[in-house]
Amino acid sequence: MFDTPAGPVYQSATGGRAHGSRDFVDAAHGAHGHGTRFADLLAGDGFVDDALPASCECGPHTLSRVRLQQAVTNHEHKIQLP
């Protein structure tokens, strides 16, 4: 997340990202260059999907736009992915 004059922007990387020492290069959390970059204004309207793409080394997930807005309002720094 980062703030812009238009409002908070959510950013993540989507797609497969390897983590471990088997067949892939081990990359630390937050490593750049893995997956496809996704960015969107956090504020949505009636025409945007609530599900934002989110992923970690364990695989792809989605994050609720509404839940993330609540976390920003409440100054939460971590959200548990389902």
Rank of each mutant, 00 (worst) to 15 (best):
A28N: 03
A28V: 03
Y10L: 00
A43E: 02
T36H: 11
K78Q: 15
V72D: 07
R17W: 01
Y10N: 00
E76S: 15
D23H: 12
G44P: 07
T73D: 14
R65A: 02
S21G: 12
K78C: 15
V66W: 12
A71R: 07
F2T: 08
H29Y: 04
T4L: 01
R65N: 09
T62R: 13
R65H: 11
M1F: 06
G15V: 03
Q69E: 12
Q80R: 15
L63D: 13
D45R: 11
G46S: 14
V66C: 10
A54R: 06
C58K: 01
T36R: 11
S55Y: 02
G15L: 04
V9I: 12
Q70I: 12
C58R: 06
E57N: 05
G20H: 03
V25D: 08
A31H: 07
V9A: 01
A27Y: 05
G30C: 05
T36I: 13
E57S: 05
R65G: 02
G7L: 07
D26G: 06
A28L: 01
P8A: 15
V66N: 13
D26K: 09
K78E: 15
Y10T: 00
L52Q: 05
T36E: 14
K78G: 14
H29R: 00
E57V: 04
S21R: 09
A71P: 08
V25R: 10
L81E: 08
V66Q: 14
L63H: 12
D50N: 11
V9K: 07
L63W: 10
S55K: 04
H29I: 01
G46K: 05
N74M: 15
A51N: 02
